[in-house]
Simulated assay, not measured.
Amino acid sequence: MAALVSPSTGRSVSGLSPTPTKPAASASSPTATKTPAPAKTPPIQKVQLIVSAAASLTESLNELQPLFEAKHPGITLVFNYGASGTLQKQIQQGAPTDVFLSAAAKPMNALAEEKIIDAATVKNLLVNDLVVVVPADGGLMISSLADLKRDDCRKIAIGTPETVPAGSYAQESLTGSGLWEVLQPKFVFAKDVKQVLSYVESGNTEAGFVYRTDALASTKAKIAFSVDGKLHKPITYPIGIIRRTEHRAEAELLYDYLISPEAAAVFDKYGFGTSP
C-alpha cells in the first residue's frame, strides 16, 4: 500500500488508508434512473359561441358575459350587436351565428319561417318601453308626442323603421297619433338605437325615440316622456337558437343561462322586464 503524504508537513503518513472512492453509477444503477416527466395536460379547447343581439342589449349582455364564462370556461362568447332587422339579413345571408336575440318578434319569426331558427327554441325573453329623450343639459321641456310639433323642436332622431324595431314602434305610435306625416321633415334616421341616443346626447337633435333601457344607461340624455304602450305592438325580445349551429350543446347552455334568475337580475338592473 502506498504511503500517504501529509499536505501540511510533506511527510509520509503511515497507517492511514486513502478514502475509498465510490464506483461511478452504472446506467443500470437505480440512482441513474430518471423520473419520467409528468404528462402535460392538454389545453382546454374553447368553443367560440357567436351571439347576434339587438344593440339595446349591449350593456346587459356585456355584464353577463364574464359571469357565464366563469361557469363554463370552455366557452367564449362573441357578440355581434346591431339593429335586429340588419342582424336578420346577416343571418339569412349565412353570417356565422349560434344564438339570436332580437328586439322585435318580426325578425325572429321570419327566420323561424325560413327554418333558419329552431322554432322550438323561440321564447320571449324580455320586455321594454319606448320613450322620447332629450339632452340632459338644457333639453326641451316636452311631455307628449304633440309637443314634437313645436318650432323649437327642429330635429328628431329615429331608427330607420325598416331595420330598427325602435323606429318601427315609433312610426306605429306616430301614425296612430296622426303625426307621422306632419313630423317627416324633422326626422333624422339612424342605423340603430345607440346612434339615435348619440344624436341626442351630442345635441345634434332636440329629441329621439329610444328604449327606456338605453335612456337609463345614458348620463347625457334624459327621458322626456314615455310613449303610450297602447299606440304600438308590445316590445318583446325573443331568443332563439340557429338550426345550423355546430355548437348546439353550448348554445343550449347559454340559452338556459339567459332565462335563469341570475341573468334576470342583471336585465332588471338595466331596466328590462322579464317576459311572462
Score class of each variant (00 low, 15 high):
1 M>R: 14
1 M>K: 14
1 M>G: 13
6 S>R: 11
6 S>P: 06
9 T>F: 00
9 T>H: 01
11 R>M: 07
12 S>C: 05
15 G>M: 06
19 T>H: 13
20 P>R: 14
22 K>T: 13
26 S>T: 15
35 T>K: 14
43 P>M: 10
44 I>A: 15
51 V>E: 11
52 S>N: 12
55 A>M: 01
59 E>Q: 15
61 L>R: 09
62 N>R: 12
63 E>R: 01
69 E>V: 10
72 H>V: 09
72 H>Q: 12
75 I>V: 10
77 L>A: 07
81 Y>V: 08
81 Y>D: 07
86 T>W: 08
86 T>N: 12
90 Q>A: 12
102 S>R: 06
105 A>R: 09
108 M>T: 13
109 N>Y: 05
112 A>D: 07
113 E>N: 14
121 T>P: 09
123 K>Q: 02
123 K>V: 01
127 V>C: 05
129 D>E: 13
129 D>A: 13
130 L>Y: 00
133 V>H: 01
133 V>S: 06
136 A>D: 08
136 A>K: 11
138 G>P: 02
142 I>D: 10
142 I>A: 08
143 S>M: 06
145 L>C: 01
146 A>K: 14
150 R>F: 05
158 I>K: 15
160 T>F: 14
161 P>A: 13
163 T>S: 15
165 P>M: 06
167 G>Q: 06
168 S>M: 08
169 Y>V: 00
177 S>N: 09
178 G>K: 08
178 G>I: 02
179 L>G: 04
179 L>T: 00
190 A>D: 07
193 V>S: 13
197 L>Q: 12
198 S>A: 15
199 Y>K: 05
205 T>V: 12
206 E>Q: 15
206 E>C: 01
209 F>W: 03
210 V>P: 02
211 Y>I: 00
212 R>D: 03
219 T>I: 00
222 K>P: 04
224 A>F: 10
225 F>M: 03
232 H>I: 01
234 P>V: 07
234 P>Q: 06
236 T>D: 11
238 P>M: 10
239 I>R: 10
241 I>Q: 11
244 R>M: 00
245 T>P: 02
247 H>D: 07
252 E>M: 11
253 L>W: 09
259 I>Y: 04
259 I>F: 06
262 E>D: 09
267 F>V: 04
267 F>T: 04
272 F>D: 03
272 F>C: 02
274 T>M: 14
